[in-house]
Design a protein around this nucleic acid. Structure first.
Lengths: 159, 159
DNA sequence: CTTTTTTGCTTCGGTTGACTAAGTAACCCA
DNA sequence: TGGGTTACTTAGTCAACCGAAGCAAAAAAG
């Protein structure tokens, strides 16, 4: 009881901190957190498609179109019709986009990384174990039942 | 290096899961996550003021006004001029508001709580320690002072 | 080899959450 | 009384998101 509360409070602190760093980042980089995330996803391979990014970020395609519009206007990525499948659009990150990402590295990660690396070896190991445990407690898709309410299908598409 | 990455991935999984549950919750309860949070904050004591809630949630007062408007229209809380200080407005949760909260308990918490309670005693303890450590790594405002171990006030309100 | 269905993306209209700036009302102090 | 501060609201703006509707290309059916 007590303990659950304590852990929930810690969780909330983590979420809160993340939110705030997101905002700071937005100001520093001239990019909103959502735009930044798009850039990050595209940067992984240097290119992608709207559908793939939308799925990865779990937003609708409509939302993704809007985000891509903004990033394209800022010349941080380009759209071009795919050769293989002309329904698709290839999203390619531009040097400018890549530069923006590197100039404004994720503030949250920066801080976290710095501190994480300062920890003792065994502490790092334990933290990882715990974080992964929590993650799996939260994001396991096969939630058996979900008895309290019937929030339909949790994974992806809002009905 | 390796390890930092692993922990960041776990963190991202946690954030992502939270986001998604937030959305599901919104659909189930007819309340948006932000509205729900307001209700939760007010429910702690049964009443509050716009300023206090805004500070707690770290949004501007203007934003709070808008949120309160919506919740008031849904008759989940009431506004009434404070007696002591007539600049202030007392926000009081209504039975309907309380019912809404109880009907739609925070999905994320539900799941987390269930699983947390299923853990061994020592696992719980370790998880708490780790979560708090991460939280303090992230949310310490005064960056390099943040002695990693000052979580004195954990038992109640995240500042 | 057509027709139908599905898929990928965009457009449109609308909601929510968030901000700043400017306003009003009330309190506080001198 | 009058000036500064505080609490809240109003007005205007913007980002992120959604669902529905549309279009064009690919894939499946016939």
């Amino acid at each position: 009881m007590e303990r659950v509360d304590t852990s929930l409070i810690a969780l909330r602190r983590i979420l809160r901190a993340t939110e705030m760093f997101g905002r700071d980042l937005a100001k520093a980089a001239g990019l909103t957190p959502a735009q930044f995330r798009v850039l990050q996803v595209v940067a992984e391979n240097g290119f992608s498609t709207p559908k793939a990014i939308a799925t990865r970020m779990s937003v609708s395609q409509a939302t993704m179109t809007a985000l891509l519009d903004k990033l394209e206007r800022k010349e941080m990525l380009t759209r071009q019709r795919s050769q293989k499948d002309r329904r698709q659009t290839d999203i390619v990150i531009t040097p400018l986009g890549r530069a923006a990402m590197e100039d404004a590295p994720d503030a949250l990660q920066q801080i976290f990384v710095r501190r994480f690396e300062a920890l003792e070896d065994w502490e790092q190991a334990q933290l990882i174990a715990s974080l992964e445990r929590v993650a799996s407690m939260l994001d396991a898709q096969e939630i058996d039942a979900a008895p309290v309410l019937d929030w339909g299908d949790i994974s992806g598409r809002p009905s």
